[in-house]
């Protein structure tokens, strides 16, 4: 089976599940590139950080586009697991993609209330 190059774009803080979805494709021998747009990062639980590391181990990469990659998600050597990519670089990279998946919902206009901000 041909290995496909898949970009999964996450624009909304509630849809970082796109990383898990990317990992699911990596396990199926595809190349997964989840991209967190404009700093809509998840909480970096052990589960989430392990998934991000696993995507990288499977020859994919989780990217941050439009925000500095967070210090909270690092490997055992302290190196950041999330790589930074500019919007223009992302566009150029996706010209070569087999599939582009804008995942879930777009970015919210309002800031989240305390009830769901964490």
């Amino acid at each position: 089976m041909e290995s496909l190059k898949v970009y999964i774009l996450v624009a909304n803080r509630m849809y970082n599940d796109g990383i898990r979805s990317g990992l699911g494709l990596a396990v199926e021998n595809h190349y997964a590139f989840p991209v967190i747009m404009n700093g809509e990062f998840p909480s970096f639980s052990t589960y989430m950080s392990e998934n991000i590391a696993w995507v990288k181990d499977m020859e994919g990469q989780v990217y941050s586009c439009g925000a500095v990659a967070p210090d909270a998600c690092v490997d055992e050597d302290g190196d950041k697991l999330i790589a930074e990519i500019s919007l223009e670089e992302l566009g150029e990279a996706m010209r070569d993609a087999d599939f582009i998946i804008p995942y879930g919902l777009s970015k919210q206009t309002n800031e989240p209330p305390p009830a769901c901000a964490e």
Partner: peptide, 17 residues
């Protein structure tokens, strides 16, 4: 699915080139 924002417009411009 909704009105494209500036990020989407930029990406579409590159993808369509």
């Amino acid at each position: 699915r909704s009105e494209p924002n500036s990020d989407v417009k930029t990406l579409v411009g590159i993808l369509n080139r």
